[in-house]
Amino acid sequence: MARGKLSQVLREIADELDKPSTSAATSVAVDLNQSTSSAAAQSSTGSAQHIHPVDAEVARLFRPYKGRPLSRRQTFGQLRQPCSYTHTFCCLSDKNAESVPTRQLKRRLSTFGLGEKRVTYRGNHKSPDEFKRFLLEAYPKLRQGGGFELLRIAGTTKSRQLSIIPCPREGYDVNYLKDPQTQIGHATVFIRPLQRNLDMDNEPEAEICEEVAGPPQECMTCGAEFPFATIKFHSDECLRLEK
């Protein structure tokens, strides 16, 4: 376009804009709005037509979650796995026991499914009922005791005296045992039957692993044969009776 014609066109446009005509201004505004809307629609249509297949698949998969973002607490609460609690317990057989069992007694308790065990609890840390069921599964013979109470070593670690861990109204649970105010830490927790002594007069139940059962052994004192795993305890008893 020649410069003269361009200048003339611009002058005519300026003259039209300077006219105080409301209808013309309205017409221009309407034309501009229509043009803008049309351009936006074309842009939207064009972008929809050219959307990448990967983006389309992502939009489809996450459409159900649109507008419902998970809070930080919900996100980590759903992913978090239950915490475990590993501790050493020692189940006693005497409801009146007040001291730490000797090494020999610990071995005998172990033969009857009692004694010292390091166990892992994976239940609800705030549930006394779940914790009770867990201990009864770890020590089935404890069901004979009519309940139980927990104890810890009194005073220093060199002390052999036991003191009762006060039982909450709802019962013992893991949160209570882990509470610093309970002052247990990593110390062994002793379990004592509440109403009756646990039976240790009969031969141990057939729960001894076959690989450690061994062949029967003859007692050097009385000459009777006993299982490999119990001969040592019988021999000690036999020697005491002989004296």
Rank of each mutant, 00 (worst) to 15 (best):
M1F: 06
R3Q: 09
G4A: 14
K5M: 00
L6N: 00
L6A: 06
S7Q: 07
S7A: 02
V9E: 02
R11P: 00
E12Q: 05
D15N: 13
D18V: 06
D18T: 09
T22N: 12
S23P: 00
A24P: 02
A29S: 13
A29V: 12
V30E: 13
V30F: 14
L32F: 07
N33Q: 15
S35T: 12
S37R: 11
S38T: 13
A39N: 12
A40E: 12
A40M: 15
A41L: 13
Q42Y: 01
S43M: 08
G46D: 10
A48S: 15
A48F: 04
H50A: 11
H50I: 02
V54W: 10
D55S: 12
R60G: 11
L61P: 01
F62P: 01
R63I: 00
P64S: 01
P64M: 07
G67R: 04
R68N: 07
Q74T: 11
Q78L: 11
Q81F: 05
S84Y: 07
T86M: 08
T86I: 02
H87R: 10
H87T: 12
H87F: 08
T88M: 03
L92R: 07
L92A: 04
N96R: 10
E98Y: 07
S99C: 03
V100D: 09
V100G: 07
P101V: 00
P101Y: 01
T102V: 05
R103N: 06
R103D: 05
K106E: 07
L109N: 12
S110I: 04
S110Q: 13
F112E: 05
L114F: 03
K117Y: 11
V119G: 01
T120Q: 05
Y121F: 15
G123E: 10
G123N: 13
H125F: 15
H125T: 14
H125V: 07
P128S: 08
P128R: 11
F134H: 11
L135A: 04
A138S: 09
P140E: 01
K141I: 09
K141M: 14
G145C: 01
F148N: 05
F148A: 07
E149K: 09
L150E: 07
L151Y: 15
I153V: 14
I153G: 00
T156E: 05
S159N: 11
S159P: 02
R160P: 00
Q161F: 10
S163I: 10
I164M: 06
P166D: 03
C167T: 13
G171Y: 08
Y172H: 02
Y172N: 06
D173C: 15
D173V: 01
K178H: 01
D179A: 13
P180C: 10
Q181R: 15
I184V: 13
G185Y: 09
G185P: 05
T188A: 03
T188G: 08
V189H: 03
V189G: 11
R192I: 08
P193T: 04
Q195S: 12
R196G: 01
R196C: 08
M200K: 10
N202E: 04
P204L: 07
E207N: 14
G214N: 05
G214Y: 03
C219N: 10
M220Y: 11
G223H: 01
G223S: 00
F226I: 02
F226M: 12
P227F: 03
F228I: 00
A229C: 09
A229D: 10
T230Q: 06
I231S: 10
I231A: 12
K232F: 09
K232I: 08
K232A: 13
F233W: 08
D236T: 04
C238D: 10
E242P: 00
K243W: 01
